Simulated assay, not measured.
Amino acid sequence: MKKLFSMILLMFSACLLAISQDCTIYIPSDIGTELHFQTSNAKGKIQGIYSQKVISVKNIGGETHYDLLQTHRDPKNQEKIIIQDTISFRCKGNVFYIDMEKYLNQKQMEGFKGMEVKITTNDLIYPSNLSPGMALNDGSISLQVGSGIMNMTTNIINRKVEAHENITTAAGTFKCYKISEDVKSKMGFITVQLHNVSWIVKNIGTIRSESYNKKGKLDSTTELIKIVK
């Protein structure tokens, strides 16, 4: 009876996993895989380096949850860690979800320790079959500290698949989907508007991204420079 129960449980788990595997993911799926990125300003000067390492892949209630450890390092001394945080992704059915909490400024969040913080999100999603011209859903995150001491909101709108094209970085050449979006962030009386363009590929993620200010001038570029498996 115990063996029969174990077999049924195993088959049930396999069915759940099969359901979650229908979606196309835009991150690595193997634990231990590391992606290394480099961010430069408009003049090409390196401003930041960071890595993302897959540390957990779990099946929870028919969904596959992925956790990546994101580590930001000092560009002048790569042994020095500036900050680390965990970012999360999930697959449900044939849809890939990106946790909007990845857009929070972690340094600012450290300043809210011990305070009541309410976070509301509407996660970004990617359907399995992207194609040029396709419109994607909006995403948002809002944060309220205490009883309205501070409020922050970020809305990602006008998301669209622009093209399917090759992008080359130090990590190699990849056939990517080009995604454009507008980002509007507000903290108190301060409002920031950006236009982002990113190139993504399945089973890896972002290969290159560009951020433009509200005047349409390039602010920064981030590129994948190395994959470690």
Rank of each mutant, 00 (worst) to 15 (best):
T173C: 10
D182A: 08
K175S: 14
E223F: 00
V201I: 15
W199N: 08
V183K: 06
K178Q: 14
S198I: 08
T173K: 12
K184A: 07
E181M: 14
K217F: 04
S211Y: 02
G205C: 11
T206S: 11
I207T: 09
K175E: 14
K184R: 11
K186S: 02
Q193C: 12
V183D: 03
L224G: 01
N196Y: 09
D219A: 04
H195L: 08
E210A: 04
S180Q: 06
G216T: 00
I204E: 03
D182N: 12
V192R: 14
C176Y: 05
E210D: 09
I204H: 07
G205S: 12
Y177H: 09
A170L: 14
E223N: 05
D182W: 05
T191N: 10
L218E: 02
S198C: 13
T191C: 08
G188R: 09
R208W: 04
G216R: 04
F174Q: 09
L224T: 01
A171W: 06
S198R: 15
I190V: 15
T222C: 01
E210R: 03
K184G: 03
S198Q: 13
Y177R: 06
E223I: 03
V183E: 05
V183A: 06
V192T: 15
K175T: 13
T221K: 03
I207M: 08
V201P: 06
L224R: 02
S220G: 02
Y212L: 00
M187K: 07
T173N: 11
T206R: 09
K217A: 03
V183M: 10
C176Q: 07
N203K: 13
Q193E: 15
E223P: 03
V183P: 01
K214W: 01
S185V: 06
S211M: 04
F189C: 07
K184C: 09
